[in-house]
Design a protein around this nucleic acid. Structure first.
Length: 552
RNA sequence: GCCCCUAUAGCUCAGGGGAUAGAGCGCCGCCCUCCGGAGGCGGAAGCGCAGGUUCGAUUCCUGCUAGGGGCACCA
């Protein structure tokens, strides 16, 4: 019996009480909170239903609980019902009923933990979208790890997810990039507003080496254009490779430039004009975004005839929607929070529902720390830490895990030296080790003749077994919640907790008999529990995009 | 000036209204007579300040303080 089952059972009891007239008229909830009490003495599960509902029926919580208790005690598998504190109802289940879940987990296998909260929804998740003017650094690496995990979580709830990367290959910054390459190729100093760094020199040399014609002999404009085209392409390849090595592959790499080439920008503006949200002033074309709560109207086409950045955003959003995406999620860095107002406004301007069809997640910064002191990252000083640097230092799993286990609302400090020197400190190993241990235990058990022929849930009576089972059955709730709140870190924290419960169980309950002992039913049954733990750890790690080694 | 995020143990962080606030690392003390000690057990140690809502607030609201990040006809 899962907590969800218990919740449903309690609701049925409430309905029965009402239909018998024991309970007066009033709306009943469709589910009640059933959770694991912190204190083990309070039973296996607890509900605050009486406290939540008593006032509605004009009763005090304890009296309400008294009404409910005998009915709950009569449920199959419930061995004890207590009323405690202000009106908590504590339930204790028989070991057999609790343990039966172990068989369900093993039977469900990889499907355990899946849900269908988002079934039928087509979702577009845009993340990273770093400019192709340099390698991906720590901030982008965070979104890569979190975004990919979130995509997995949304898919896990039945959504059809498109992972998308918006590739800003249009505009002034790209010109700066091209000029920087050209200068580097000529051995000149970096332009005032240009990009510097070893990678600029490398790309400049590669462009020279891989282009047949002599670029440097071309007129200025043509030379710059040649470096722009080839340089962006090389940078793009590098970014895509880094991401791939990081375990993140996008379904769509969308080129901003294509919006201009295809006329999509024009179409988007025309559509908004028809809707009455476009006006002209001071020689520029504006979106009247203040109609939709933005704090100022936005220039779409500048007075010099060039498109402002938001022009691309308009066309891009429209394009996503026309491709059939019900929900468009943008993951942006904290430096883009001022963006939310205009983005929501453009969503509304198209007649969509802001916050539903368009959703923006703002993630805070990643800082580099050394010996507890913040390290100022500077492109010029060459102290920018890239995705590749991080992976080289700590490996993909540790990097992804470190970036995923915290809420994106918190800024994150990464101490590269600490992660480099003492990788054992990283909690990912604690979780992966637990998984590897389940594999090793199973292997030993099999070699000692412990089979899976029999499973008798009533034998799982040790306290650590009850704790472990209760944690295992939480996976579906955790993954559903993580998807709903867009919080992959909940899965990581859950796994750490689960790993601890598994290690504790391992220390208390042997799957294999002591030498000289005989294999008994309890050993076979525990092998099932061991398998279930391995399965849940595996399912959880996969949702985070972390590997599941069988030995470490 | 306005906007966003944050403030929980020595450190890095969980905790999306419930009972005695958790984990990892660090510190102190234990456990190798058996499935991996990358583990387990015990201990010291904490909700920035002030109000409010609630039966109940670390959680929700307001103000204050502190830290981080933003406020373009840049992209």
């Amino acid at each position: 019996m899962t907590p969800a089952d218990l919740s449903a059972a309690i609701v049925r009891v409430l309905q029965a009480l009402q239909s018998r007239g024991v309970l007066g008229a009033g709306d009943l909830p469709t589910e009640v909170v059933v959770e694991r009490p912190k204190n083990r003495d309070h039973g296996d599960w607890a509900t605050n239903a009486a406290m939540q509902l008593a006032a509605k029926f004009g009763m005090n919580p304890r009296a309400f609980a008294e009404l409910l208790a005998p009915e709950l005690a009569a449920l199959a598998g419930v061995t004890k019902v207590d009323i405690a504190g202000p009106g908590f109802i504590n339930l204790t289940l028989s070991a057999a009923v609790a343990g039966e879940l172990v068989r369900e987990i093993v039977t469900a296998g990889e499907a355990f933990g899946k849900g269908n909260d988002l079934a039928g929804l087509k979702m577009n998740l845009e993340f990273v979208s770093a400019n192709p003017t340099g390698p991906i650094h720590l901030g982008g690496t965070r979104w890569a790890a979190v975004g990919d995990a979130l995509a997995r979580l949304l898919q896990n709830q039945g959504a059809e997810v498109t992972r998308e990367y918006y590739f800003n290959d249009h505009g002034a910054q790209i010109d700066r990039f091209a000029r920087s390459l050209l200068a580097a190729a000529r051995g000149q100093e970096t332009p005032e507003d240009g990009y510097a760094g070893e990678y600029i020199n490398e790309i400049a040399s590669r462009v020279l080496a891989e282009t047949a014609e002599d670029i440097l002999a071309l007129p200025e404009d043509a030379a710059q254009e040649a470096f722009r085209a080839a340089g962006v392409e090389l940078m793009f390849q590098e970014i895509r490779e880094s991401l791939h090595d990081f375990g993140v592959d996008f379904d769509v790499y969308f080129h901003e430039n294509s919006l201009y080439e295809s006329g999509a920008v024009e179409r988007a503006i025309t559509k908004l004009r028809e809707l009455g949200h476009i006006f002209e002033a001071d020689g520029a074309i504006w979106l009247r975004s203040t109609t939709f709560g933005d704090d100022r109207d936005r220039v779409v086409i500048k007075s010099d005839g060039e498109a402002a950045y938001i022009a691309g955003d308009l066309a891009y959003y429209l394009d996503k929607r026309e491709r059939g995406h019900d929900r468009c999620i943008y993951m942006l860095g904290a430096d883009h929070h001022g963006y939310i107002g205009r983005m929501m406004a453009l969503c509304s301007a198209f007649g969509d529902e802001a916050g539903v069809n368009l959703e923006i997640m703002i993630g805070q910064m990643v800082n580099l720390v050394r010996d507890g002191e913040p390290v100022r990252m500077s492109k010029r000083a060459g102290t920018v830490v890239t995705m590749e640097d991080l992976v080289d230092a700590v490996g993909v799993d540790a990097a992804r895990y470190a970036l995923t286990r915290s809420s994106i609302n918190s800024s994150l400090d990464i101490d590269l030296e600490q992660l480099t020197k003492k990788t054992n400190d990283n909690p990912v190993f604690y979780v992966q080790y637990a998984h590897a241990r389940t594999k090793q235990v199973a292997k030993n058990a099999e070699s000692l003749g412990v089979t899976r022929e029999t499973f008798d849930a009533s034998l799982l009576t040790h306290e650590s077994e009850g704790e472990l089972i209760a944690a295992l059955v939480e996976l579906p709730r955790i993954t559903a919640q993580a998807a709903q709140f867009r919080d992959p870190h909940r899965v990581a924290r859950y796994l750490e907790d689960l790993a601890g419960k598994y290690h504790r169980w391992y220390d208390n309950c042997r799957v294999t008999p002591l030498s000289g002992g005989t294999v008994e039913l309890v050993h076979q049954t525990r092998l099932w529990l061991n398998d279930a733990a391995g399965q849940v750890l595996r399912n959880g790690l996969r949702l985070l995009g972390i590997s599941t080694p069988e030995r470490m």
